[in-house]
Design a protein around this nucleic acid. Sequence first.
RNA 1: GUGGGCGUAGCUCAGCUGGUAGAGCAGCGGAUUGUGGAUCCGCGGGUCGCGGGUUCAAACCCCGUCGCUCACCCCA
Length: 427
Amino acid sequence: MSEILHAVKGMNDVLPETAEAFLSTAVWDKVIDTARRVIEGYGYRQVLIPIVEETALFARGIGEGTDIVSKEMYTFSDRGERSLTLRPEGTAGCVRAFIEHGFAKTDPVQKWWYIGPMFRAERPQKGRYRQFYQIGAELYGASDPAADAEVIVMMWRICQALGLKDVTPRVNTLGDKESRDRYRDVLRGYMRANVDTLCDACKARIETNPLRFLDCKNPACKEVARKAPDIMESLSAQSRAHFDKVTTYLRDCGLAYVRDAALVRGLDYYSETTFELTTSALGAQDAVGGGGRYDGLIEELGGTPTPAIGFAMGVERLALLVAATQQVASGPHLFIAPMAGAESFALQLADAVRTGGPYRVEVDVTGRKLKGQMRRADKVGARFALVLGEDEIARRHGNLKDLRVSSTSDVALTGDAICAALAKLIA
RNA sequence: GUGGGCGUAGCUCAGCUGGUAGAGCAGCGGAUUGUGGAUCCGCGGGUCGCGGGUUCAAACCCCGUCGCUCACCCCA
């Protein structure tokens, strides 16, 4: 037991059958397929970005002072020369690619989506892992509030398409740089006035990052934060107008969002609109997805200034919610059980059915007795079973058995005939 | 990095005040030479996380260590 190798802490296997349903591939397929369908319906196209990037990209992009960069990155040296790191999020790499391929000049409006693993060296807990998957989308070259609204609605639609009920969209604005600077000062003043009730972390944040005080979970801080001045008061006219339009569009689209003044987010690159999808069903990790506008990032990383907005959703968290609320199964439509001597015929017939229609067909290749084969048909959740023996092969006809109700119907043993029968019986 | 809980069969766990291991489920086979789910019978599976200590004797007590898990910080 102690000699076998183990997956490293916080990194999971996703398998066809698992004790924890959210780590089964059927659930993941549902999450990923659904998200892809919804996102591509908005005109986004997939990009595949490397998992490893130069450390400097994340340090500069996400921000030196953030938790991610200061203590959570998997950083290593590549043959002793340059410092590389496993991506902790997807936006920085996409932005790097956007700049590197010169899209700002040639075709600035880009709608990209991605899926893949991200890495953060935190202590794992429910809904939080060191290797975790994100589905994300980035929209470049659009500064109009319609872009913000569309992205938020899209994220919401993914949850709807997954049948998730307990999900709340929250939105906020951080304003443009001037608004934020102004608000930071206002907040500092307010925090100093209440400094004796703040936790130690927040005392430090007065200087380093006052915004973060707003989402501190310390009860005393929370109470003080609740009465803190709202950023709305510090917003420039443009930022104010931008946010007003975003929320108007959201309402027009029928989205029941909550404006959350404490929604600040921990990455440095956000500006203007920020948003999150939260749930009460995940324990301490209540965010299933989040994002925001990052108009300054492309310039920050050396590109021509281009507005941008994006979001990321956690696949594990979505899978957790899906697995908790619904049964996801994908057994074969047809299970073929060959008696001794019928194996070759079974293989050929199965192939003919697969080419003749959109059906999953499994042949029992264990060579065991019929009883065992039927048990397996049941276990894998097959809808129909077909036994092949000397009789059937001689008559070129067999009994298609509906395993849900144990009724049988006679079919000719050709791919087309079986496909036609399945089409009729499944409908 | 900090704190709580837990490590016994593939899974979920039982194991009384220490006497060198059990159940259910799952798996495989049979009862029924060719038709699943129910029932019955049988079979296989364990260095009791690891190391050390106390003891005639340790899954149980003590120390250490590793791992898992939940929570804090923060996020997806």
